[in-house]
Design a protein around this nucleic acid. Structure first.
Lengths: 228, 228
DNA sequence: GTAGTCCGAATTGCATACAATAGGCCAAAA
DNA sequence: TTTTGGCCTATTGTATGCAATTCGGACTAC
């Protein structure tokens, strides 16, 4: 599974993946959330056009679409840059993400089909095994699948969409946590509380469990940044 | 309402250093949420370019940005159309809106400054007076200000942003309610519960009060559509 | 009469040329 | 040396031409 598949940057803006602008949008979004393009990095239209062997037109379109989703910032007559939110904005995004994930988790607890519940368990088990393997990149991919499964299980397309979008937007600032391998085991324990609540259909417990999980993730990020 | 909208065909009065694409985006978004462009209406690039006296390029850009925000739907090599979500999608948006508004309202109850609380009261009072005047359009504008004040009062820029965006996206399907003037008085009573809770700093009550309000709005919409 | 296929007109997708503007560079004056 | 003002260049914003694709209508076969 590619990262792009596990972290779809929101609903496609152009369907039937055939336009170059849409491909570029996905590619650039992937590079931003993966950290290849770090916050503040300029997105020069000509340079990107050269790199992707296309004209400026589709590059421009891709950049604007990313700007609309919040991943990049554009100002008239100046180069677009990868979004670099302030500490306050980032705190707000984390808070919103915690609430949105809690909403999804709670709905998932009471709305997931038995097939979906089984799929969630499978992913959860896969993550357990991977704690040992110690492949942070791969763990991250499956972890995204775990959360996406919960969003889908909420059976509210729009809610899943904005939650996923929020997650993508915060992603460039969450990466650091997986450098700490000890974090993986703790993360799995938190996940376990979420899964148990969802499987039992306990809405409010599922919500609060994942809320706690997100808050912990945020705290890990803050601890990391303070150490710089 | 944008200034351009109120100027029939005149030359620009103020040369803002904004780009044409951005002007078009605001103009088209305004027409969509106001209902001048109804869901399903095609957005032909050449027609719009002709109408706004620009080339297709900025028109295209504006349309894509609107697509990214969900107000229009774009498919490759086909005309963009004003978004026409399915009944399920619309239900999901209403549900998400209710939850987001509840979040904002709850936060506002515990985070608003005294100045903000006063401003909210003022708008609320203004709405009370306007119940009598019976100007649905003007009532709608002040009503938007009421909700926006709560979003801002939540002191979370990102949350306010996605809540406002959700509201805009549902707006084309909420318009009908204000044709029923009797609805205005009921709406004000619901608002009153929200305002009282916020002023008293009662987070959960503020949240549930506005949740109820949004659910009622949704029910009004459903009643309206069923009557067609 | 109906269904299927192919062609043409119309529209979007992309490339390129041109216009406009922000920011840097340099010179001149304090 | 510092500051200020204007040009100059690099980059973005817009227009336009051409390529690619969709869709409707006509024609054919059954």
């Amino acid at each position: 599974m590619t990262l792009a598949a596990s972290l779809p940057e929101g609903r496609p803006v152009v369907w039937e993946r055939k336009t170059r602008a849409e491909e570029l949008r996905l590619q650039l979004a992937d590079e931003i959330v993966r950290g290849a393009l770090f916050p503040g990095a300029p997105l020069d239209e000509i340079t990107l056009a050269d790199r992707f062997r296309v004209s400026r037109t589709p590059v421009r379109e891709a950049i604007r679409l990313l700007a609309a989703s919040g991943l990049v910032e554009v100002r008239a007559h100046r180069a677009a840059v990868v979004a670099r939110p302030s500490a306050e904005q980032l705190a707000g995004m984390f808070e919103a993400m915690a609430e949105l994930e809690a909403l999804c988790s709670g709905f998932a607890a009471v709305r997931m089909t038995s097939v979906e519940r089984r799929a969630l368990e499978d992913i959860h088990d896969e993550l357990r095994v991977m704690i040992q393997s110690g492949d942070p990149q791969r763990y991250h991919e499956v972890n995204e699948a775990f959360h996406s499964t919960i969003y889908t299980g909420a059976h509210n397309t729009y809610l899943a969409e904005i939650t996923l979008s929020t997650r993508a937007r915060v992603q460039p600032f969450r990466r650091a946590q997986f450098r700490n391998l000890g974090r993986l085991a703790k993360s799995h324990i938190e996940h376990d509380r979420v899964v148990q609540a969802i499987l039992r259909g306990e809405q409010s417990i599922a919500a609060s469990a994942i809320y706690t999980h997100i808050v912990t993730v945020r705290d890990e990020y803050e601890t990391y940044t303070e150490s710089l």
